[in-house]
Structure formats: structure tokens, C-alpha cells
């Protein structure tokens, strides 16, 4: 942007630096407090560094059972929401006009609904059927909106599917099921991978829908929430540091993979 004045450009850069400071400062606070040997968690009082909070976290039974529950829920949500999302996308791809529009609106509506309402309505519904709230209702509530993400991703991919391939296969005598398995599914594979990752993250990190639908059970995240209310242990910051670490590793892996993909594309 050679036309932009140096002055306004500088202002924008300073603004951006401030924004980044705003985004990352709390993470820094978490980092410092997690290693600080002082409770309640603070960064204004420093009594030396410690790894105590990590070992306390390691010995915490409820955190471990929460982690197990989180993983169980996440796997179930992936197994449920991906087929549902894919079915929704396939249905829409063959459905035009007003019916398609209405169906589409219903399918994206969970993304525009506050999470707690999805949680509450699921619990009410299952209580009518005689089932109490627990891991299963949490799985169903989460799947309701995570399937919407999957549906949107599959839909975007399906729009780029070359229909002539399928027609050619059918002309050559393949059944529709064969054509689907040999052409459509392989074409969708990259989306299956990303949708799995997104579904896992959405499920694992979810608080709003889960806390309203899980009843007396707990996941790692709802347990963290409960700890924040009762007693403020710096242990929470230790979890935060672990989250940052895992996220950083994930981001680096993703960045490297993308770089490699780009290089491969350049070679072609």
C-alpha cells in the first residue's frame, strides 16, 4: 500500500501491537502464576518458583476422571456428529428449492443458539422420555451443534466434487453404493480428518452446553469451572500452562503440515 501515508500506517501498527498484547497478556499472567509458590494465585506476590501445582494436579483423582469422561464424550460425539453432518450435507446436495432452504436453516440453527439452551432442551426432552441427565445427554447435546460444523465443512467440500466422475462410474456399471464408496468417500477424506479434529476440540473444550446437560457427572472442563468457584488453587494455572503447551505444539504441527502441503502444491 504505497499510497497509505506512513503516519496512519504507523498508527495501525501500534494499534495492532496493542491488540496482540491484549490477546497474549493474560496467557503470560497464567504462565507466571502457575509457577509461583504462593496461594491464592497471584503475580503481585512472588515467593519463588515451584512445580508443586503440577504434582498436585497429577495426584488429583477428580481431574483424571474428568479427563476420562471428556475423552469418552469426545469420541462418542465424533462418531455421532460426523455421520449426521455428512448425511445432512448429502441430503442438501440433492435437495433444492424451498425445502432445502428450510432444512438448511434448521441444520445451522444450533450454531446460532446459545449453548446453554441446547443443553437445557436436551435434558428436558430426555427427562420426558424417562432418562436422567448424564454423560449420554451431554453427548447428545454436544452432537446437536457439532454436527452443524461437520455439515458445513462437508457441504463446502461436496460443492467441489466433480459429478462427471460419479456418472462415469455409474455408466461403467458400478452400483451407486460402489460409486459412493470409491469416489465420493475418498474425495471427502481430508474433510473427515479436519472435521474430526474440530469436533474433538469443540467437544473437549465445551463448557456452556455441557454444564447444563451433564447432570451430576463432570468433565475436565466442568471440573475446572467448579474449582474456580470453590477455592482458588494455582493448580488451575498449571492446567492452563498445559493447555498452552498442547495448543502451541498443535499450532506448530499444523503450520509445518501446511507449509509442506504448500511446497507439494508448488512442485506440481
Amino acid at each position: 500500500m504505497s499510497h497509505t501515508g506512513m503516519g496512519s500506517n504507523l498508527v495501525l501498527r501500534i494499534y495492532m501491537a496493542l491488540f496482540f498484547a491484549y490477546m497474549f497478556l493474560p496467557l503470560g499472567v497464567m504462565l507466571v502464576a502457575g509457577f509461583s509458590d504462593y496461594s491464592p494465585p497471584s503475580i503481585t506476590v512472588w515467593r519463588g518458583g515451584t512445580l508443586r501445582w503440577f504434582s498436585e494436579l497429577w495426584a488429583d483423582e477428580r481431574m483424571w476422571s474428568g479427563l476420562t469422561n471428556s475423552l469418552i464424550i469426545a469420541v462418542a460425539v465424533i462418531l455421532l456428529s460426523l455421520p449426521m453432518g455428512l448425511s445432512g450435507a448429502l441430503l442438501l446436495s440433492k435437495l433444492g428449492g424451498r425445502a432445502g432452504g428450510v432444512l438448511y436453516a434448521v441444520m445451522v440453527s444450533p450454531l446460532l443458539t446459545p449453548g446453554l439452551i441446547i443443553g437445557i432442551s436436551t435434558v428436558i426432552f430426555w427427562r420426558h422420555l424417562g432418562a436422567a441427565a448424564g454423560l449420554v445427554t451431554a453427548i447428545l447435546a454436544q452432537s446437536a451443534f457439532i454436527a452443524s460444523y461437520a455439515m458445513l465443512m462437508f457441504m463446502a467440500r461436496l460443492q467441489r466434487l466433480d459429478n462427471t466422475l460419479q456418472e462415469a462410474a455409474l455408466d461403467l456399471g458400478a452400483t451407486q453404493a460402489q460409486a459412493f464408496r470409491r469416489i465420493t468417500l475418498p474425495f471427502l477424506r481430508p474433510t473427515v480428518v479436519t472435521a474430526t479434529v474440530i469436533a474433538f476440540l469443540q467437544s473437549f473444550e465445551n463448557y456452556n452446553t455441557t454444564i447444563f446437560s451433564i447432570g451430576g457427572q463432570h468433565t475436565l472442563v466442568t471440573e475446572i469451572g467448579a474449582r474456580m468457584r470453590f477455592g482458588m488453587s494455582p493448580m488451575i494455572n498449571a492446567i492452563g500452562i498445559l493447555f498452552i503447551l498442547v495448543t502451541l505444539i498443535g499450532a506448530v504441527i499444523w503450520g509445518v503440515l501446511r507449509q509442506r502441503e504448500r511446497k507439494l502444491e508448488d512442485l506440481r
Partner: peptide, 17 residues
């Protein structure tokens, strides 16, 4: 990165600040 770190933990950081 800040987006991927759990909402609760980010809020808790502000609670400390």
C-alpha cells in the same frame, strides 16, 4: 492460540488481573 485455550482459563487469567 489464545482462541484455542479454554475459555474458562482465559477468563480466570482476567480474574487474577
Amino acid at each position: 492460540i489464545p482462541y484455542a485455550i479454554n475459555e474458562l482459563l482465559r477468563i480466570f487469567a482476567w480474574q487474577m488481573i
